[in-house]
Design a protein around this nucleic acid. Structure first.
Length: 104
DNA sequence: GACCTGACTCAAC
DNA sequence: AGTTGAGCCAGGT
C-alpha cells in the first residue's frame, strides 16, 4: 500500500494543497476556497479541509487556512490553538472570527 | 465500485 | 441573521 500511495501522491491535488499552505506568509491567511483554487480545483474546498484534517503535519500551518466567511472552521489541535497562533502572527481574531483582513 | 463522510461554499428561505 | 438543501472533491469503508 505504501508504495502505491506514495507514487500516487507525488503529483496529486493533496500535494499542491500542501505546497500552497506551506507558502502562506506569516500574518496572512487563506480561505479553503482560495487554497482549492490555487491547487487547481475551485470547487474542492471541502477536500482541502479533509486533507488538512487528516494531515496533522507540523510543517503545514493549517491554522492559516480559514473559511471564506472569515470564521475559522476547525483545527485538529484545537480551535483555541488556531486562534492563538493567528493572533500571534498579527491576524486579529474576534469571537472565533477573523477580522481586519484583506478580504471584506 | 458504489456509498458515506467532512476543518466547505453558495443560494434560497 | 440563522438554517436548509444541493453541489463539489478526495479518501475511506
Amino acid at each position: 500500500m505504501r508504495r502505491t500511495l506514495l507514487k500516487k501522491q507525488r503529483n496529486s491535488f493533496q500535494e499542491k494543497v500542501y505546497e500552497k499552505v506551506k507558502r502562506i506568509p506569516k500574518g496572512e491567511v487563506l480561505t479553503y476556497k482560495e487554497v482549492a483554487i490555487l491547487a487547481g480545483k475551485p470547487k474542492a474546498s471541502i477536500a482541502v479541509g479533509n486533507i488538512l484534517n487528516k494531515n496533522r503535519d507540523y510543517k503545514i500551518p493549517c491554522h492559516r487556512v480559514i473559511k471564506s466567511d472569515g470564521s475559522m472552521g476547525g483545527y485538529n489541535r484545537g480551535l483555541r490553538r488556531k486562534a492563538y497562533l493567528l493572533k500571534k502572527e498579527g491576524v486579529v481574531i474576534k469571537d472565533g472570527r477573523v477580522v481586519l483582513f484583506k478580504f471584506g
